[in-house]
């Protein structure tokens, strides 16, 4: 119940932001929610299924490029572009996942990292779509022909709505019999196999879904910045997404929310919003904010002992 309370409190706080803040803050919080959506999709497979994917930014970036490329080709409609972006990212996740999920542990981390980097280099070589310099969008997407997303406040609430929808969806899936297999295989894969269940197809489906959700966050990000570039797919950003998920899980368990299971998705939202705000705050203090953020991460791990020692 605490997990639900945490989520509701977070969503309520995000909902009142436009009532009390200026455009700059609204845009910042919208950005935080977009990353929260990506972090939820990552936590769905990382926290839910134990799959430490280090290529999640690539899925997000593919979604962003989906919107950018379609707009460049003349399709501005979100009802076409967003599903297309999700399909592209989901498909990339399914194809790379089919290979990556054959491996375990640290191999999986490195392979998802490598596939993410592959997508990064492909984005760099798309000379027709800006190559290394990236691609500016002519405008934000239209929704059913209407230019609703132009208004920062409408965009804010649209993003919040999608964040709530995807979070609820991920929580429901994790609670379903399908999600039970994912959660069990994370804890004790050998036992699950001995019960007659091969976790591979379950993980693959989950990975593809996470890809589609991450693609959706990328489509939103492209609209927020009205710009896409290969940097969207960089592995630093994948690392940041992992930081959001893990820092959020630690914060959530400090608040008494049971880590593991569906309850922790609220942690991912909390982590993403927290990390974006901390980064922004540090960046105000010094241009070299990473010199502070890096050691913070190290301390977080060394003092936190998030999952404890491996058996």
């Amino acid at each position: 119940m605490r997990a639900l309370a945490l989520l509701l409190a977070l969503f309520a706080a995000l909902a009142v932001v436009p009532l009390a803040a200026d455009t700059y803050v609204v845009a910042l919080v919208t950005r935080a929610m977009i990353f929260a959506l990506a972090a939820v999709s990552l936590d769905f497979i990382l926290g839910g299924a134990g799959l430490v994917s280090f290529g999640h930014a690539a899925l997000m970036g593919i979604g962003a490029y989906g919107v950018g490329i379609l707009m460049e080709e003349g399709t501005r409609e979100a009802l076409i572009a967003f599903p297309a972006a999700m399909a592209a990212a989901g498909l990339f996740a399914l194809v790379t996942g089919a290979v990556s999920l054959k491996t375990r542990g640290v191999y999986f981390i490195m392979i998802t990292l490598a596939f993410g980097q592959m997508a990064f280099f492909v984005a760099q070589s798309l000379s027709a779509y800006g190559g290394d310099d990236g691609l500016s969008l002519a405008a934000r997407s239209t929704v059913a022909g209407q230019r609703w997303l132009k208004s920062p406040v409408t965009f804010h609430y649209a993003t919040l709505g999608l964040l709530i929808l995807i979070t609820a969806l991920c929580a429901l899936i994790l609670a379903s019999p399908f999600g039970r297999v994912l959660r069990a295989a994370k804890e004790n894969e050998r036992r699950v196999r001995a019960l007659g269940i091969d976790p591979y197809p379950y993980r693959l489906v989950a990975y593809g879904l996470a890809g589609a959700f991450a693609g959706l966050s990328g489509a939103l990000l492209a609209n927020l910045t009205e710009f896409v570039s290969p940097a969207f797919l960089s592995w630093h950003r994948s690392g940041e997404l992992i930081v959001m998920v893990v820092a959020g899980a630690m914060a959530a368990s400090a608040l008494g929310v049971r880590a593991g299971g569906a309850g922790r998705l609220g942690g991912a939202v909390l982590g993403a919003v927290g990390v974006i705000l901390v980064e922004e705050g540090l960046a105000h203090l010094t241009e070299h904010w990473r010199i502070v953020f890096g050691p913070l991460l190290v301390l977080l791990v060394l003092l936190g002992g998030w999952r404890g020692r491996r058996a």
Binding site: L172, I173, A175, S176, F178, V192, L195, G196, I197, V205
Partner: peptide, 18 residues
């Protein structure tokens, strides 16, 4: 035990609660 029963029931890809 429910997980074990699920295994006995064959693969199920129902993503929603049943």
């Amino acid at each position: 035990v429910v997980l074990a029963l699920q295994g006995a029931g064959g693969p199920s890809f129902r993503l929603w609660p049943a």
